[in-house]
Design a protein around this nucleic acid. Structure first.
Lengths: 222, 222, 222, 222
DNA sequence: TATGAATGAGTATTCATTCAT
DNA sequence: GATGAATGAATACTCATTCAT
């Protein structure tokens, strides 16, 4: 999968990943502990002592694998992004498979991507917050964003004959940007705080977003 | 102004605001110092000692006015939100005055609000980042958001006869949500990292956003 | 006194020396604690927590005055060197005053300097050990060494007509070097471990050293 | 060789020295690694992990042979001292062989010993620094010192008829002490920092030291 | 016996907050 | 009130040593 290749290119770092046995188990425990804490705290404001307690791993073990807390977080991000990217690729593939028109595709994409982001919002939020203070986290996030953007845009371009605007690339690009931004904000990426979120609200948002994007793509410019 | 009333309702706390003289001046200096540092660091990762140096105010003075660093930040936020809200109210008024059609209004609103947010992004970003860890900051931000949302929606509703969708309130609500989300993400609120941002990109974004919202509002449901 | 001037030039750093009252007292307590520990341990292998306990000063207080442990040690060194230099200047002056011949002078100088170094060996030892890992400590030590060397050499040069070797400067220089090296090693500067040191041994060493230097200075080259 | 006997008497400890094969090879590699690091760092501030990397030996292997890092260092010191002692014995023998007068002998001894110490200063320095914090290292160093002192003194005593001072043993003893101290300090043993050391300086030092010792030994007491 | 992962006590340093002056 | 020195809990990180494999 190109996602994986891409992730490796970016996230490769000093993580010394063990291959088996006790060693592997403690490695997994510590990554899991970090994820747990990240989700629990909606941010990275936990100490390595907490990681060591939650993951039943010694401080030294952590430093045996990672050069710094920063590094550990980056690794967790890389793994999360890999899962998320794969999930989104699946969603995109499903949408492509099920749709027979631009409108249907947009509806399926908006819904699928929104649900996928929602499912992973627990981990995406803390990394979004971290990005300003860690350029590598920012870069990894951006790379993942662009990769998925590209896939979505390609999927939409399969229906380019339904798009009336002369600058097809531009509108498709704007469409994904608006899609992602709106969902991300709703889920509280960055602002940290999710919207007031009744379940109704969420459904409405997805519908309107799909509607808006679909009609935007299909309308001629004014 | 209703903004102020609203802000006071929420942000009123232990801030002991002096009314005049040297005391007042040092109070202003310390708030200004916090703003400076907030903008400079894109976050709240500065110490009170730095505030005391930049603002030429003693630590004791700060604690004379505020019960905690948290409190001080909340006060700064409240004041910033007041300025920002007023700026946005002005923008909305101007848009209302200049527009003679829904489309014109939407174009003017998108541009005006985008520029206003951009102008204030230096202070909005750090507070967005802070929101997850300070519920009061989150609440203040949310209140301001809803207040402006309301004003924008009211302005749009003046052209409700141009809106074809039966649930007028809903679509207008979605429109503002999408507008704000997209601009906020572009400016890096929360994700911390602004988009790759060429100036062209910014113009395109505003145009497409306006186009999308305008056509969304004016189209009938499918 | 030129010593003081010289020390200031070298040791001036970020030490924020308070001028009076409680503040001054805690400052003194922390420097005293460091000296105590330095002497007790014959080295700098103590933690700041220990300093804080021995000196009844909080960790924060130490960092209020110094930027780092390194810095603190440098300040202690500078103060110690000032005391030591002044003591040695006094010894040199006394030797000059009492002697009426080169031989008498050398005897007095060897004895005086030896006793002075012995008196201060508790603090000189740890700083000698530290020098390799802190260039500033090394530089301060070297400056002090050269300053005293110069004074001693000048004192000896007052009897240059008794010196038969044509290169007066050179032999005087060698004389001080040998004097200092021998005493320093006896006291365990650097090697850390003082010689087996019976009191007799110490007296013998001083006598023979004086004898050797005196006859060296007064003999013609071979 | 009596050196070896003497060293063994002191340094024999828990070192479990293997006699042959791969085992022996890894044992050698780890001692060599320690020497490399000792010289490179001018001290013992390296971790066993570094030893394990440089020597391509596992941590477990090191602890298979030695009970502690302290122990390992002691073993390295013992081996280094053996080499150094043998080198000095050779130098002393050569000086004895070449000299036909006390003066010639002293000149040869000073030069030979100085050069030998200089050659081995890379390893002597770190052990001198370590001595204050490890009594066994100190004891080994002292034993070696006394052993060589004895040999040098015996060599000199072959010319006892040229020595005018009635207490022959004493002056010979003082002579070696001064010789060693001066060279050691010049090379930076202990104080850590070698003198400013131009090559000229080194030659001058050796000459003057020889001159001083020679004339001291040959002069009558005052 | 060899390996190197795991352990955890110990270190320097930061910073919100208190309080004597 | 105003000042800023003092406090000390908390944190990331190191490294000798142990021990499961």
């Amino acid at each position: 999968m190109s996602t994986m290749i891409q992730q490796e290119a970016i996230a490769t770092g000093p993580s010394r990943e063990p291959q088996q046995g006790r060693s592997r188990a403690s490695y997994e425990r510590m990554l899991a502990a970090v994820e747990t804490l990240l989700i629990e705290r909606c941010g990275d404001d936990f100490s390595l002592i907490e990681v060591s307690k939650v993951g039943k791993v010694s401080i030294g073990s952590i430093y045996g694998r990672f050069d710094s807390k920063e590094d550990l977080l980056r690794d967790v991000q890389a793994r999360a992004l890999e899962r998320i990217d794969n999930d989104q690729l699946r969603v995109i593939a499903e949408a492509k498979a099920s749709a027979t028109s631009l409108h249907q595709l947009v509806v399926a994409l908006v819904d699928g991507i929104a649900e996928s982001l929602r499912k992973h919002s627990g981990l995406m939020k803390p990394f979004m917050s971290r990005a300003p203070s860690d350029p590598l986290v920012a870069a990894n996030g951006k790379a993942s964003y662009h990769f998925i953007a590209q896939q979505v845009e390609l999927a939409i371009l399969a229906y380019r004959d339904e798009i009336r605007h002369p600058d097809v690339v531009r509108v498709v690009h704007s469409a994904y940007r608006i899609l992602f931004s709106t969902i991300a904000r709703y889920l509280g990426f960055g602002s940290g705080v999710p919207a007031d979120s009744a379940e109704l609200d969420w459904t409405v948002l997805k519908e309107d977003l799909a509607l808006m994007i679909s009609s935007f793509l299909r309308s001629p410019p004014p």
